[in-house]
């Protein structure tokens, strides 16, 4: 095991009763990158993050985080990792300033050091002028920024974000990601879980999870290139009937309507998919298109829970 990986796991498994929430997961997350967990709800994203932060003990498997093995080194790792929970976990009846002061003290920052760091975070996360506002009265986007500020008070080397933007509008989500790239640029490794395709596409590397197992991993581009299906879009009328008809074909992996088009995923073992499809669409026009991350997701997980 080398230190170039911030996180390395072999056969990481967590059982809840008879159900494997995470099933023999192998991960190798390079330092200084943004790594995404993409998957539907209940696929094991949160459970994996909780094991990697030392909150849950694995049923079996090896975990190494920042060169330390888990379970065992939880307390040692606390100062080196930051964790932003899925649910807002700061105190709603404390102000922005008070919340950050509390976190700074808990991480053992000295008074002067804490004051400097908090001022820095307030301006970095655009919270200046909000110091005296109660955390509970802030909007979703502001809360996320505060939570990120709190998770990074102690400048962690490794940051875990569990569905950080599920309550944030697209504009705020873009800005949030800009901040993540800023953190990444100074060497922070970031592990983020999401079920948004656009968010997943921003990650350097990605693991697609379903039912506790990893279905695919790699960079978003590599995943799209290596997808085991071709994508063809059909334009025309009466698409609903056509969809019903195509979906029963075994060569068709998925059919989704997008506005006035049908996006069809055809297994790569069909030698000439365009020709194969032409005979079945009765004169409607068709064209092969570039696969998207959503197509990758659908081929990996079998057309379920598309966000």
């Amino acid at each position: 095991m080398t230190a170039e990986f911030a996180i390395e796991t072999h056969g990481m498994t967590r059982m809840f009763g008879d159900v494997a929430a995470v099933d023999h997961l192998d991960l190798a997350i390079p330092q200084g990158s943004i790594y995404g967990f993409l998957g539907p709800n209940g696929c094991g994203k949160s459970t994996s993050i909780r094991m990697l932060t030392g909150l849950l003990r694995p049923t079996s498997g090896d975990i190494r985080v920042l060169g330390e093995s888990l379970p065992g080194a939880e307390e040692k790792l606390r100062r080196r990792i930051g964790y932003m929970t899925q649910k807002f976990s700061l105190y709603e009846n404390l102000t922005v300033q008070e919340n950050l002061e509390f976190v700074a003290q808990i991480y053992g920052l000295r008074r002067k050091e804490a004051r400097q760091r908090i001022d820095e975070l307030l301006s970095l996360y655009d919270l200046l002028g909000r110091e005296k506002q109660m955390a509970g009265s802030m909007s979703g986007g502001e809360r996320q920024r505060l939570a990120l500020a709190a998770a990074t008070v102690h400048r962690p080397e490794l940051l875990f974000l569990d569905e950080p933007t599920s309550a944030v509008d697209p504009q705020n989500r873009r800005e949030f990601w800009e901040r993540l790239f800023d953190l990444c640029a100074v060497g922070t490794t970031i592990l983020v879980s999401t079920h948004y395709m656009d968010e997943a596409e921003r990650c350097h590397h990605l693991a697609i999870l379903e039912r506790g197992t990893k279905r695919a991993d790699g960079s978003p581009q590599a995943l799209m290139d290596a997808m085991g299906a071709r994508v063809i879009e059909v334009t025309g009328n009466d698409l609903r009937t056509l969809k019903q008809q195509l979906i029963s074909e075994s060569a068709v992996m998925s059919v989704a309507q997008i506005g006035s088009r049908l996006r069809i995923l055809i297994r790569s073992d069909v030698i000439n998919p365009q020709e194969w499809l032409e005979s079945r669409v009765s004169g409607r026009s068709l064209a092969e298109v570039r696969p998207s991350l959503e197509d990758v997701f659908v081929t990996c997980t079998g057309d379920r829970h598309v966000a």
């Binding site: 932060t53 964790y83 976990s89 709603e92």
Partner: peptide
């Protein structure tokens, strides 16, 4: 209220 999950990842 969900504060605990954050609190137990701190060195407290």
């Amino acid at each position: 209220q969900g504060n605990m999950e954050f609190l137990i990842t701190t060195p407290v």
